[in-house]
Structure formats: structure tokens, C-alpha cells
Design a protein around this nucleic acid. Structure first.
Lengths: 105, 105
DNA sequence: GCATTCCTATAGAGCCTCTATAGGAGTATG
DNA sequence: CATACTCCTATAGAGGCTCTATAGGAATGC
């Protein structure tokens, strides 16, 4: 994953969970898919982030079974998590616009 | 400065120096200006970045005088610095597009 | 049984940015 | 002058995110 952006992982994870609960590797695959392969989130980056975000109260988790009958921990957005997603999305747009403006100034 | 994006400082600095040499605080002011106040780069963030980038060979510096007759160190892009600017600009566009796509998926 | 895939997890390092602090040097003001 | 203020550079130390590398349990295919 490119190192240019740090701190965007939270946004991508929150966004990936918006449609519904998913397990860790599922989130990783979904991020890779929706960013067209630009962001490859490896386990060593993903799980610390998930734990941190659960600690923060943005996610809740519960054990279940994946599509392949494997034990998997499913994460879902909490109400504060949804608020955080909205907030970070807005912030991203603001920043994105500011940088784009700077680059063509 | 928002903590959502880390690692973008280099791009903003390189971009600020594209038109010509500037001293540290001038770079800081220019970044604030072209990003419409979104990015406020404080000295404690700026100078370590400048030193790191000079170390990397992207910038060269020389002492001179500011508009107010104060001693100031002027930074300018080196040829590798210009290549880096181009490279990081391209990378930024790629990433920016990927995230925008993800957010509206 | 054995290799492979799926899934979660941790340790440790590296790196960037932040807050807080410092100090020299020129300038304005009285 | 003397004092306060701005300009300009700089460092220390901490905090935080992401990376590489590694591990292991569990189900599956052959």
C-alpha cells in the first residue's frame, strides 16, 4: 500500500462496513475491490486498526461463520461509528479539494 | 492541521517550491494560502520535513535575506526534487480517485 | 495424512507529525 | 536606549499509524 496517505485506513474500513457486517478479511477484500486494487490492506495493518476502532466504540464485533464455514469475527458499525464515517467523509472531501486546488495553483 | 492525512506534507512543500526558492516560513504561508487555510503547517512540522527532504536530495538550501532584511534559509527544488514532485502528484491523483470511487460505491 | 487456504492475531520497527520550547536578530515605540 | 514584539530557524520528546515478519488454529481438497 502506498505510504503517501496514512490515517485514511479508518475511513476505508468504516466505509466498507456501511452496507453491513463483515469479517476482517472480507473488509480487506472489499477495500481492495472498491478502490480498484489501489489499497491492499494486509492483516498486520488491518487488525490493529479494527481493534483500535472497536476500542474507540466505532465498531462492535461478534463471532460467527464465514461463507466457507470458517469461524470468523464479524464487525459492524455502531451509531458512533456511523457518525464517525460521516464526519471523516466530509473531512476527506474538504482536504481533497484543498490539495487539488493547491496542485493546480 | 487535520491528522487524517499524513505524508502529504512533502507533496505540499514540493509544490510550494515549484515556482521558485522560498524560506521556511514563506513555504508555510504559501501552503496555508493555496489550500485556503486548510493546512496550517507549524514550524515543528515544517523544519523536520525540510531537513529530511534536503537529506533526501530533493531540496537544496542557501542563506539569504528575506523581504524584511531578516536572515533566512532559502530552499529550492533540485532536479530529483522536481521528479519527486511529479511522481507524488501523479500518485496523489491516483489515490484521490480511488478513495472518491470507494466513498460513493 | 498432508499441503493448502482461510482467518485472526501479535511483536517490533520505522516513520511522520504534533506540542512545547528555545533563542538570535531586526524593528518599532516611547 | 530599553523594552516589547515580530520574524525566522531549530530541537526534544511524545504519540500514533502502518509496515514487515511471524504464528497458529481450523476447515478443505487430494
Amino acid at each position: 500500500m502506498p505510504n503517501l496517505l496514512q490515517g485514511t485506513l479508518d475511513l476505508l474500513i468504516l466505509n466498507a462496513l456501511a452496507p453491513g457486517a463483515m469479517h476482517g478479511l472480507g473488509i480487506s477484500r472489499r477495500i481492495e475491490q472498491v478502490t480498484q486494487g489501489t489499497f491492499l490492506v494486509k492483516p498486520g495493518s488491518l487488525f490493529p486498526a479494527l481493534h483500535r476502532m472497536e476500542e474507540a466504540g466505532w465498531l462492535a464485533s461478534s463471532w460467527g461463520e464465514s461463507d466457507n464455514n470458517r469461524k470468523a469475527k464479524f464487525y459492524r458499525l455502531t451509531p458512533p461509528g456511523r457518525r464517525q464515517l460521516k464526519s471523516e467523509t466530509t473531512e476527506w472531501r474538504r482536504i481533497s479539494i484543498a490539495i487539488a486546488a493547491a496542485l493546480q495553483a
